[in-house]
């Protein structure tokens, strides 16, 4: 499982490398473009996702301690927080659309090529991440519904699902400074 996760890390690596190249080439314009993102929504989402990760970790421990009911509760909490994350993300996308920051739409208008490119990267990066969040949510739901998994004191299924969920979290931890913090002023 961890080997697969290393592979996932590399998948996002390409996006980060692109962001790095862009930032190195257009230092100040990059910051200006990032400033248009909603830093507060991004921060809130970081907190939501970190908390969700905590819930997944607790679920693993509860299953190990032979408390299947608590494992299920923690997993559902993680699912709920994941949905909150997606909801905030959706609200943010809607806001971007209204402000004409979404590339490829009719009302899109940018202050310059760097901003255009930055928003492209932003949507590819967060979009790819959102896909992973959705997959992770599916896995969490499967684990929460699986009676056997809850009672498994080795927590094999829940453990692996949690590993995946943590990875999704780690990727976001790096997306946050790359996309949001770069624009704070």
């Amino acid at each position: 499982m961890l080997v697969f996760l290393a592979s996932e890390v590399m998948l996002f690596g390409g996006i980060f490398a692109a962001a790095l190249a862009l930032r190195l080439e257009h230092e100040s314009a990059y910051g200006a473009a990032a400033h248009h993102l909603n830093l507060w929504l991004g921060t809130a989402n970081t907190a939501v996702l970190l908390t969700s990760s905590l819930m997944a970790a607790i679920a693993v421990q509860a299953a190990r301690d032979g408390k299947p009911a608590w494992a299920a509760r923690a997993l559902w909490a993680a699912v709920l927080l994941g949905c909150v994350f997606l909801a905030i993300k959706g609200a943010e996308y809607a806001g971007d659309l209204r402000e004409g920051l979404m590339p490829g739409t009719a009302q899109a208008h940018f202050e310059g090529t760097t901003q255009h490119l930055f928003m492209n990267l932003y949507f590819i990066g967060t979009g790819l991440h959102a896909v992973h969040v959705t997959i992770g949510l599916g896995l969490l739901v499967v684990a929460a519904l699986n009676r056997q998994a809850r009672h498994d004191q080795h927590a094999v299924l829940i453990g692996n699902v949690a590993l995946y969920w943590h990875l999704v979290d780690v990727v976001w931890v790096f997306l946050y400074p790359t996309l949001y913090l770069a624009g704070a002023r």
């Binding site: 592979s7 590399m10 998948l11």
Partner: peptide, 11 residues
């Protein structure tokens, strides 16, 4: 296989 191929994929 595991570490290089995903970079090609995203590229």
């Amino acid at each position: 296989f595991v570490l290089a191929t995903p970079v090609l994929a995203v590229t």
